[in-house]
């Protein structure tokens, strides 16, 4: 019997946002990355358009990080010693974007200075042709100082500057406005907080197509269900026509999963957790691939193997045959 497929008639769609600028647009990126534009829920090709694939960003730091899992230290090796070299390695490993984050201090234990931030961004921009996202260590005053310098250094590159948070967004938004960048708006797993921050940022005259929203998530086993559902709700709101939620979403999967003991630690854990490296990469890849199903447009990961894994999943989800058949 012919079955009529139930279709939703969505009133709204996600905005498209372009990261990075090529020479034609006043930057130096070899190409840009465009995300968003969905007119339906993730990968429902039978119902609407998914004009842009979700993308994978690789997180790198301005210097060899402290406290990262040994698995990550082994995977990137000496290339972590220099942000430019690391960015190049990330590009070689297949990243679509580079997500540069700053620690609070340099290797010498001194606070990270605006000057060193500027230098690190310059190295990354020179080493790779990929669009770049840059975020501070997450402390308001430090973020503001570093990001203003970064915005100047990368003027015209359409960097994504983070983190704009409800208590600290003005300086970063002003820097983005002044130098042609985008912002990374981060809120704590709540639909209304996410919406509110977008409104505040937009009130400063930064156009909505220069905001990427980060509703944050927990890692697998550590609250992923909260992030997952908040993202589903945000995407539903966007499709139902709520304009302040119609932004592409980003999640920092690597930052969350590599804090989890399952990823970080290889010894003194139950045998039932399985082989460390396999488990750790599964932890990151499973978290990332499930959040892509709930609407993530950009996932930021740390391990090079996760980049490959998540790309393969995206390839599979973007194969737009409705049925597949076997």
């Amino acid at each position: 019997m012919p079955v009529k497929i139930p279709m939703e008639k969505w009133a709204g769609s996600v905005r498209t946002v372009t990261l990075g600028a090529t020479a034609a647009d006043g930057g130096t990126r070899q190409h840009t990355v465009t995300v968003g534009g969905e007119t339906t829920l993730p990968f429902l090709h039978f119902e609407g358009e998914i004009p842009n694939r979700p993308v994978v960003a690789t997180e790198i730091q301005d210097r060899r990080p402290d406290g990262w899992s040994e698995l990550l230290m082994e995977a990137w090796g000496d290339r972590m010693n220099d942000p430019g070299d690391w960015a190049k390695a990330a590009e070689e490993a297949g990243a679509d974007l580079i997500a540069l984050t700053f620690g609070l201090t340099g290797l010498d234990g001194q606070p990270t200075s605006a000057e060193s931030a500027r230098l690190a961004v310059r190295k990354v921009l020179d080493a790779t042709g990929l669009p770049v996202m840059v975020s501070g260590p997450g402390q308001a005053e430090v973020d503001n100082e570093l990001l203003v310098a970064v915005a100047e250094e990368g003027a015209g590159e359409r960097l994504v500057l983070g983190y704009c948070e409800d208590r600290n967004y003005r300086t970063i938004v002003a820097a983005a406005l002044g130098h042609g960048h985008l912002v990374h708006a981060r809120t704590a797993m709540d639909v209304n907080l996410a919406k509110q921050l977008n409104i505040l940022i937009n009130d400063m005259q930064l156009p909505l197509d220069r905001i990427i929203m980060d509703p944050t998530t927990g890692a697998l086993g550590y609250g992923i269900e909260y992030g997952y559902s908040v993202m589903e709700r945000l995407r539903l709101a966007a499709l139902q026509g709520d304009s302040m939620t119609q932004l592409p979403m980003l999640v920092t999967v690597g930052e969350e999963t590599w804090k989890a003991k399952e990823s970080k630690v290889g010894q003194g854990v139950p045998e039932t957790w399985g082989v460390w490296e396999e488990r750790a990469i599964n932890w990151e890849a499973v978290t990332a691939s499930s959040l892509i199903q709930s609407g993530a447009d950009i996932v930021v990961v740390r391990h090079p193997e996760s980049v490959k894994r998540v790309h393969a999943v995206i390839d599979s989800m973007m194969t737009a045959n409705d049925r597949g058949g076997s």
Binding site: V3, P6, L44, F46, M317, N321, R323, G324, S326
Partner: peptide, 29 residues
């Protein structure tokens, strides 16, 4: 068993089946 062979196909079929059951109360599925 909708006999799907790809992830995108699986998502489509399984979503359609769930919608038909919940939204249309379509008993055959």
């Amino acid at each position: 068993d909708p006999c799907v062979g790809t992830m995108a196909g699986a998502l489509s079929s399984l979503t359609q089946l769930r919608r038909l059951a919940l939204k249309e109360n379509f008993r055959p599925l």
